[in-house]
């Protein structure tokens, strides 16, 4: 499984990351180096081995159905690059 320039372009798009055209090729090289090294995992027979879902023996915590949060639109918007009337503002989204 070798990563090429187009693959880097595709995953960068999925990750919403602008990678300059000039970086695609070198990035493909770096990723290939890492994936070749990771290939060694293929040696291990994992048949019947369950995938790890949690490293600790702990039951999922539950919260009570009580309203304890909210009513803080100002604090919520305080860090926003752009906001108006308690809304976050983004460039027009065409659906």
């Amino acid at each position: 499984m070798s990563v090429d320039k187009d693959t880097v372009r595709r995953i960068a798009r999925l990750a919403r990351l602008s990678v300059p055209e000039s970086r695609l090729e070198p990035m493909a090289g770096e990723l290939n180096g890492i994936f070749q090294w990771v290939e060694m995992l293929g040696e291990v027979n994992v048949e019947g081995v369950p995938a790890m879902t949690s490293v600790v023996a702990q039951k999922l915590k539950w919260r009570a159905d009580i309203v304890t949060d909210g009513g803080q639109a100002d604090a919520l918007l305080a860090n926003a690059p752009e906001g108006a009337d308690h809304f976050f503002v983004v460039p027009k989204v065409v659906e």
């Binding site: 499984m1 994992v46 369950p50 879902t53």
Partner: peptide, 12 residues
Amino acid sequence: AYYARAQKLRTL
């Protein structure tokens, strides 16, 4: 090939 296998390796 990657993520699922890695999580199995974690179990091992």
